[in-house]
Nucleic acid binder design. Structure first.
Lengths: 253, 253
DNA sequence: CTCGTGAACTTGTGTATACGAGTCTAAGTA
DNA sequence: TACTTAGACTCGTATACACAAGTTCACGAG
């Protein structure tokens, strides 16, 4: 194992080790149930003390990615966190500043919204499936961060088929009054219903940063498919600080 | 600070310290935002090394209860995990074995259900509020554990007003075929709708044990109020292993 | 009064060491 | 063959120490 660790880096050594192992797990190079290097292997591979090796593993425990088995070793969790939607391209671009900011009034509360990223690009497989598109198809992608009282509480990514957005400012940072739904209605579309899937999991590193989450804080994950005129016209992937929200639903019996 | 720690106990010292601090937080003796003892104060109070004191605090970090601020100290999290429903009396009684076990067929999957506890007792304030009862009113309480493929996935507690259960076996471990809803329909009741609230949080200790959760694994929390003939007839508080479930909803537009 | 500095606290990161306890395997014994 | 045991591995818990870095506050200089 080559040494990828820079002790002079700003980032603590144990975090660098955790980053490396996390990358291997997230890229699928270590599958669920697979054994990780033992603590003593980490000690010699990275030239650190056992305390530091264990601290690296402890980070991944807090993230729900790995578990220890006494006397046996460390393993990638068998029931991994729910599959994430996410686009690499837009994840990277969202590192920068907000492209656009608006204030909106919703449910009697003022929200600030930072539009992190807007553009056209390939959608993740989970989104194309829900939209009824071919795998890897291009869509309009809108990524934004919602605030309540200057606290970031929600990061949302929408995927809209190109033909739905066509001829509208939906692919622009500011889609105009009423947002993208209003633009779709301008085109004569009528919304039928929403299909939603709700799950909870530990946040990714990026979500921890964007939502300013303390360690050990789960997020709720809401994937909403909007259906208009009988066809899916938007998949909206929303990640919320779980401590900040309770969702209320009313279902017919 | 008196020493409540037993080094000879089976339970590790750092866990005992964590238990004590957790209790103070959960009982409200340390409010959100309040400062915890510093690491050196814990060292002298419990006569342990700094590593052990930090390990105790690390447990509470993983549970999402406390945060550290560099150079300032340790604090109870300001946005605490969503309020839990829960009845002390029944939590204690549920420690034992299942009172009753049934197999049920649901959505093409076989479930095993352990009925942990059934009886009459005071309901928590959150349940009485939803049921429109006075605070501390008695209800029928049914607590049960659901399994899928011998994995515990769900612990559910139902609170039913006494007059709704009256004259039925709803307050018995086995309420008969079709469960308690069938018994209510036997009485001529018609279900109108459900109101649900969904949140996510880190599990309590008891939930971790019952659901066999690895550390760092969040739970989803579903509170469902069933309404029949215009009045709430049951509050069902369900805690699920978040990694095992995705909830699907269809909402009218 | 304002500003800056230093001391005394806090947590963050890292080392080395020790022993307990669970798991696995291979060698040895009945 | 079947069982036991010893050894070598694993993680679990705990001690003691060191230095870096952030926060707070009081004191002194201007």
């Amino acid at each position: 194992m080559t040494v990828q660790i820079d002790p002079a880096s700003d980032r603590a050594v144990y975090r660098q080790i955790a980053d490396y192992l996390r990358g291997e797990v997230e890229r699928g190079e270590r599958e669920p149930g697979a054994q990780l290097p033992s603590e003593s292997q980490l000690m010699s591979a990275y030239n650190v003390s056992r305390v530091t090796a264990r601290r690296a593993l402890g980070v991944l425990v807090t993230e729900g990615l790995v578990v220890a088995e006494h006397g046996r070793g460390w393993f990638v969790r068998r029931r991994p966190p729910v599959k994430r939607l996410g686009s690499d391209r837009f994840s990277r671009r969202a590192e920068g500043k907000a492209a656009f900011t608006v204030d909106m009034e919703a449910s009697n509360r003022r929200f600030r919204v930072d539009v992190l990223d807007v553009g056209r690009g390939p959608a993740p497989i989970e989104a194309t499936t829900r939209l009824g598109l071919d795998a890897g198809a291009e869509t309009v992608v809108r990524r934004r961060l919602y605030f309540a009282e200057d606290q970031p509480i929600e990061v949302a990514t929408s995927y809209i088929p190109l033909d739905v957005a066509d001829g509208t400012p939906i692919d622009q940072p500011n889609p105009g009054p009423g947002g993208i739904y209003a633009r779709m209605e301008d085109k004569g579309m009528t919304f039928d219903r929403y299909e939603e899937e709700i799950s909870a999991r530990m946040p990714t590193q990026e979500e921890t940063r964007l939502l300013r989450l303390p360690p050990g804080s789960p997020v709720m994950h809401l994937v909403r498919t909007a259906i208009a005129d009988g066809r899916p016209v938007e998949v909206c992937d929303t990640v919320m600080d779980a401590a900040a929200f309770v969702l209320h639903y009313r279902l017919p019996a």
